[in-house]
Computed example of a mutant assay.
Amino acid sequence: MALLQLLGAAAYTGTYTNQEWNHAYEINSVGGLLGASLSSLRGFGKFLLVLFALSTIGNNILNIYSLSLSAQVIGPIFKRIPRFLYTVVGTIIYILLAIVAANKFNDSLISLLSLTSYWSVVFVVIVVEEHLLFRWYSFKNYNFDIWNNRKSLSVGIAAILSGLVGAVGIALGMTQTWFTGPIAKAIAGDSGEQGADVGLELGFVFTAVSFPLFRSIELYYIRK
């Protein structure tokens, strides 16, 4: 991994000294830069490009397999759908998304990674607060025997509501190519800049404050 990262850094550095590489990067983003940097190898360079393209598919195998497993645990009805159908549908979806996002690869990648980090912080806050505040730091307070018993498991209303509240905080502070929240705009002021992306921090705070409240109400009325 480190060698690949160094290779990528070296290729991008070449755009400052090689006009052909720079032009290829501006027109076709990372793929164009990779093709230009391997063009001197002629046929072997094209062969390497094919391997790089196929490696993307290989990297997605684990993700798509995980999709099929995750989809089946949503509810009993989803178990009736064969697992391979989830992988087929998921593959079609990510291919279509890749085609649409190919023209703006960097912007699309940055937006996707940002959305992933936004979601992750909300999820982590809910899980950690549940463990620390309501399970009292101990796994002994979990009943692992009811993992598949819907009637005994928590309904999840508190997690859903606090997740929505966290999403509001994210929207207020996020800065992306397609949307800038009002708080991010306020930070930028009249500078003309896009503004600081504080969506992650606001999502953390909004979720951390709201989940204990919603969870306490849920335990009081639903008692699980």
Score class of each variant (00 low, 15 high):
132 L>R: 12
146 I>G: 15
79 K>I: 02
36 A>P: 11
163 G>W: 11
196 A>C: 01
3 L>E: 10
74 I>A: 13
89 V>H: 06
105 F>W: 14
168 V>R: 03
101 A>I: 07
163 G>L: 07
151 K>V: 00
123 F>T: 01
180 T>Y: 01
52 F>E: 05
91 T>W: 08
28 N>C: 08
7 L>T: 07
135 R>F: 12
56 T>I: 14
176 Q>A: 06
46 K>P: 00
193 E>M: 06
210 S>E: 02
7 L>I: 11
187 I>S: 01
91 T>A: 15
124 V>L: 15
95 I>P: 12
183 I>S: 09
80 R>D: 11
64 I>F: 05
7 L>W: 08
192 G>P: 01
92 I>W: 06
34 L>C: 03
221 Y>N: 09
160 I>G: 13
211 F>D: 04
160 I>V: 14
217 I>P: 10
221 Y>F: 15
54 L>P: 00
174 M>S: 08
113 L>G: 08
62 L>M: 10
224 K>P: 09
132 L>K: 12
141 N>D: 12
218 E>M: 09
140 K>H: 11
101 A>W: 04
223 R>H: 15
50 V>F: 02
147 W>S: 11
166 G>C: 11
120 S>L: 14
133 L>P: 07
50 V>M: 01
15 T>C: 09
8 G>W: 06
82 P>T: 00
200 L>R: 05
43 G>N: 13
1 M>P: 15
12 Y>N: 05
216 S>E: 01
68 S>Q: 04
92 I>D: 03
62 L>N: 09
28 N>Y: 15
87 T>E: 15
113 L>R: 03
113 L>V: 08
105 F>A: 12
111 S>I: 02
41 L>A: 14
94 Y>A: 03
218 E>V: 00
123 F>G: 00
177 T>E: 02
169 G>K: 06
209 V>P: 03
200 L>M: 02
83 R>W: 03
46 K>R: 10
151 K>T: 02
73 V>W: 09
52 F>Y: 12
129 E>V: 13
84 F>Y: 14
218 E>D: 12
37 S>A: 14
131 H>D: 06
119 W>E: 00
136 W>D: 13
